[in-house]
């Protein structure tokens, strides 16, 4: 066991895991986090707490994690290298370990240009792969990046992101391999809409045997409206929403139901793909739908390991 977190245990046991995103508020209200925690508690194995997602300032991820943990919900601490240099990253990791956080997701982060402080200085002292390796060495060797000894354990189940839809496509499997080599125990992918492309990527992953070396959780983004589908198609970098998804939403009388339907179909297909160990649902501003989705996908109740 790396950290012995619930997520790790479920994945270890070979069961299909479910995680979801719980973004902290643009304010100080602990209630927001708590409400999401309560809502998702029974349908997910762990909840990702985002770190100033899309470069918009929000309550810190670590605080969100603590709030969830207090509710008995297992958090996944998301952390980006955009805002922290190696000192800040390591100190936050020590803190997370001290607070009993068992999972983290190591990311580069969306560029500050997109957010609400576009004039900020980006840090980018190290990159996400170096970050993963650093956390792994902190955990496994008890060493800081400079080689100094860490007192105490850093039990973290290390996650990384993968975007099978970004370019250059051929490099995407290589990049996953690098992340795994750096120390990624589990992977959460970008939201999947283009199943054939995803399947192709997974084939590459299996060809290199990578699915045996890490746990891959496939990303899902439930779509609420055709506007949202269009927006994601045109404006969100790294997302690949095919035209027929937009059309399905546009032609539907009940777009929300259609969105759910698309999601459920995707989950069914994902279950069939060898190497997929679970799903990660990013229902931004539509968290309410998650319990229904998980239930209708036949993934309830969540196992206890």
């Amino acid at each position: 066991m790396k950290s012995g977190s619930n997520l790790e245990r479920i994945l270890e046991s070979g069961q299909f895991a479910v995680t979801a995103e719980a973004g902290p508020p643009k304010g100080t209200s602990s209630k927001v986090v708590q409400r999401k925690g309560e809502l998702l508690k029974f349908c997910c194995d762990a909840l990702n707490v985002t770190d100033n997602q899309t470069a918009i300032v929000r309550m810190s991820s670590l605080s969100g994690c603590v709030l969830l943990k207090e509710l008995g919900v297992e958090p996944i601490l998301q952390m980006v290298v955009r805002d922290r240099n190696r000192l800040a990253l390591q100190s936050d990791i020590l803190g997370a370990a001290a607070l009993g956080i068992g999972n983290m997701l190591c990311l580069s982060g969306d560029h500050q240009k997109f957010g609400n402080h576009p004039t900020a200085k980006g840090v980018y002292d190290i990159d996400s792969i170096q970050f993963i390796r650093m956390v792994k060495e902190m955990r496994d060797e008890h060493k800081f990046l400079n080689g100094e000894e860490i007192s105490g354990d850093v039990p973290l189940f290390i996650g990384a992101a993968a975007n099978p839809f970004a370019d250059p496509f051929e490099f995407r499997v290589t990049r996953l391999a690098k992340k795994i080599r750096a120390g990624a125990d589990f992977i959460q992918t970008q939201g999947i809409f283009d199943m054939s492309k995803f399947a192709e990527w997974m084939k590459g992953v299996r060809d290199r045997g990578l699915h045996k070396k890490t746990y891959i959780l496939a990303g899902l983004i439930p779509i609420k409206s055709v506007g949202m589908a269009r927006y994601m198609r045109n404006n969100v970098s790294g997302l690949d929403v095919p035209q027929d998804v937009v059309d399905r939403m546009a032609n539907s009388k009940d777009p929300k139901a259609e969105g759910v339907k698309i999601c459920l179909e995707t989950i069914e297909q994902l279950k069939e793909i060898e190497g997929i160990q679970g799903i990660h649902i990013m229902a931004v501003a539509w968290e309410d739908i998650v319990p229904r989705l998980v239930a209708q996908a036949g993934l309830m109740p969540r196992p206890i390991v």
Binding site: H111, D127, A166, R175, S237, G238
Partner: peptide, 8 residues
């Protein structure tokens, strides 16, 4: 160790 997931 790029590119990131935003390269399109």
């Amino acid at each position: 160790n790029g590119p990131c997931g935003g390269s399109m």
